[in-house]
Amino acid sequence: MKKLCLAVLGIVLLTGHAMASNLEYFKVYTPKQGMSADEIMNIEYFVKYTKFAHDASFYGKAYFIDKSGSVRERETTRLRITLGRKSDDIAYKDLVMFTAPAQVKGLATLTWTYMNPKKEQDTWLWVPSLKKIRKISAANADDSFMGSDFTNEDILTRRFEDEAYTLLREENFKGYHCDFTKKTYYQDAPCFVIEAKPKRSPWYYSKRILWVDKATGAGIYEEMYDPNGKLFKIIFKKFQVYNVNGKEYPAQELLEGKDLRTGHRTVITNEDIRFDIGIPEDQLTEQKLMQSRW
């Protein structure tokens, strides 16, 4: 009987996930009043990975700021195409090219992310000092993303299926003052407040508390708690809505991550964001990466 109950529970959970994950690519979704935590988070992930757009290009800058205020800077150009293709299971492809400073100029990573949540990404790295492409193992999810205060999981690999969600409350966000731009964002913005607990245990965090903007479905602010329940990191994201061919696409323009243990923080700005510009898929292949000049 116990096994049967577990099986039924399993089917319910799986069905729930299947339903929750069943958002169609290339459509725009916003959360509605009365939606469950799962439904809201499913939209949040959809927005995070720009699954509404066929492709996107970003020019970005990353600032690494240590406790003393010393700033290091990186510049990148990023291309993404969304595929959601069942034949080879590819969800989307990303190409990140470093353009400055000169020491890292030319370094580029190509990543293919699969729809199967259990499947790891495929990653290729163009190494200018070798003039060669290297297939690399996917970095561990809890490793720092490009030396930032975000983990790989925060930026690239965390998926809807990795956590269990509870809707805590609905409230107007208190606002976030960004030290970098000296501006306050999202003051009094209506939000869903969601608790997300990782299914993997032990893991480097015990829970995240997220504020999801009701207007766009974007996760604008989150607090991360360590295994002892102590707040150790905060992440803020500022979204701008772009009108593309009559559709409203929310895009991340500013990210700020603060590690409260080290006092280190990272700011990523995305400028010159363009959607649905017809990036051909052959620009995001191993062969194309091999033709890099820098």
């Binding site: 499947k119 790891e120 990404q121 495929d122 297939k135 690399i136 193992s137 996917a138």
Partner: peptide
Amino acid sequence: FNKTFTNPGFMQGIT
């Protein structure tokens, strides 16, 4: 050749 084992299993994560 190159191949990364992306599917779950004891080889996952190995290139």
